[in-house]
C-alpha cells in the first residue's frame, strides 16, 4: 500500500459559489475574530456565525474557520475521530474540494490545513500547518455555572477554582481523575479553555504546538485560538497529576504502543481488537514496515 498523493480537484468545482462558499465580507469578519483570538490565547471571541449547508453539530464552526483561512494553494485534510474516511470527514473534504477547488489529502505530513473533530494527529505538526477544531460547547465553565454573564465574569476575573470541583468529584468517586476527554486546560497561564471533545491523550500535543490551533463553535458562535508555541496546561491536583490514557496492548495492525487506540468489535461473540484511531498514522507505520521487510 502506498501513500496516496494529494488529489487536486478530483471532484468538479461547483459553479456559482464564491471561493470556499462564504462571501468575502463574512470571511473578513471571521478573520478579524481569529486575529483577536490569536492575540488573546484561549479567549472566546464571539462572531456572527452564518448558516451553513449542514446542521449544527456537524462542524459548522470548524467549516467557517476553515473557509476563512483556506487559500487556493492549501492542501486540506479532514479527520473525524482520527479517521479520514468517516462520513463527516468525507463530506467536509468534498465540500471544500468543490467550493474552493483545493487539493485534499489524507496524509498529515502533506496537509497545510487540517480540520478535526475529536482528535489531534499523532504526527507532530509543524509551523506551516494550521489545525482547526470543531467545537460543540466552547465554555468549559458551563458544567458548573449555567449563566453566560457569570462565566464571562469568571473568565475576566480568573475565578477558575470551581473547575477543580469536577476533578475532585472524579477522584472522590473513582480514585483518579476519570475525565478522559474535553479535559480542561489553562492557556498561556491565563484563560481556561475547552480543548473540544478530544481525548485527554491529545492534551500534551497542544502544549507548545508548532502549528496554529483554531477553534470554531458554530452553534454558540465563538472562535478561540492557541498561537504556535503557546503553553497549554491541563488542570490537575498536586497529588493527582495529569495523566494520559495508556493501553496494555499495542495496535493490532501496526503494533504502535504510543498512539491513541480505538476498540473495534470484530464479531458478535465478544471478539475485539485495539487499533490506532489515527488511520493515517497507522497506515504510514504499516507502509514503513512493508518497505523495511522488502
Amino acid at each position: 500500500m502506498t501513500m496516496p498523493a494529494p488529489t487536486r480537484a478530483s471532484t468538479p468545482t461547483s459553479e456559482g459559489y464564491n471561493f470556499a462558499y462564504l462571501d468575502e465580507q463574512t470571511k473578513r469578519m471571521i478573520r478579524r475574530a481569529i486575529l483577536k483570538a490569536v492575540a488573546i490565547p484561549g479567549y472566546q471571541v464571539p462572531f456572527a456565525g452564518r448558516e451553513m449547508p449542514l446542521p449544527y453539530g456537524w462542524g459548522t464552526g470548524g467549516i467557517q474557520v476553515t473557509a476563512a483561512v483556506i487559500g487556493p494553494k492549501d492542501v486540506l485534510k479532514v479527520i473525524d475521530q482520527g479517521a479520514d474516511d468517516t462520513t463527516n470527514a468525507v463530506s467536509i473534504r468534498r465540500f471544500f474540494a468543490r467550493t474552493a477547488g483545493v487539493a485534499t489529502t489524507e496524509a498529515t505530513r502533506e496537509a497545510t490545513l487540517i480540520q478535526t473533530r475529536h482528535r489531534i494527529p499523532e504526527l507532530p505538526l509543524n509551523e506551516r500547518q494550521i489545525l482547526v477544531y470543531q467545537v460543540p460547547i466552547p465554555e468549559p465553565l458551563r458544567w458548573m455555572e449555567p449563566r453566560e454573564t457569570e462565566t464571562r465574569k469568571m473568565h475576566a476575573l480568573e475565578e477558575y477554582g470551581v473547575m477543580h470541583v469536577k476533578l475532585y468529584e472524579d477522584i472522590a468517586r473513582f480514585g483518579r481523575i476519570a475525565t478522559s476527554y474535553n479535559y480542561p486546560v489553562r492557556v498561556d497561564g491565563r484563560y481556561l479553555m475547552s480543548p473540544s471533545p478530544t481525548p485527554k491523550f491529545d492534551n500534551p500535543k497542544m502544549d507548545r504546538m508548532a502549528a496554529l490551533q483554531l477553534f470554531g463553535a458554530g452553534r454558540e458562535k465563538r472562535i478561540y485560538a492557541v498561537p504556535p508555541y503557546t503553553e497549554v496546561k491541563s488542570l490537575d491536583f498536586d497529588d493527582h497529576p495529569f495523566e494520559v490514557q495508556s493501553w496494555d496492548q499495542p495496535c493490532a495492525l501496526c503494533g504502535a504502543t504510543d498512539s491513541y487506540l480505538d476498540e473495534v468489535i470484530t464479531d458478535d461473540r465478544g471478539g475485539r481488537m485495539f487499533v490506532c484511531s489515527d488511520t493515517d498514522h497507522c497506515r504510514r507505520r504499516r507502509d514503513a514496515q512493508e518497505e523495511a521487510a522488502q
Partner: peptide
C-alpha cells in the same frame, strides 16, 4: 451545589482560593 458531593461542597471555597492538593482538601 446540590449536584456535587458534600466533600466537594466544602472543598470548593478552598479550591477557589487556590488549594490544589486533593489530600489536603479531603
Amino acid at each position: 451545589r446540590l449536584a456535587v458531593s458534600a466533600g466537594a461542597n466544602i472543598g470548593e471555597p478552598l479550591m477557589a482560593l487556590g488549594a490544589r492538593h486533593y489530600g489536603d482538601i479531603r
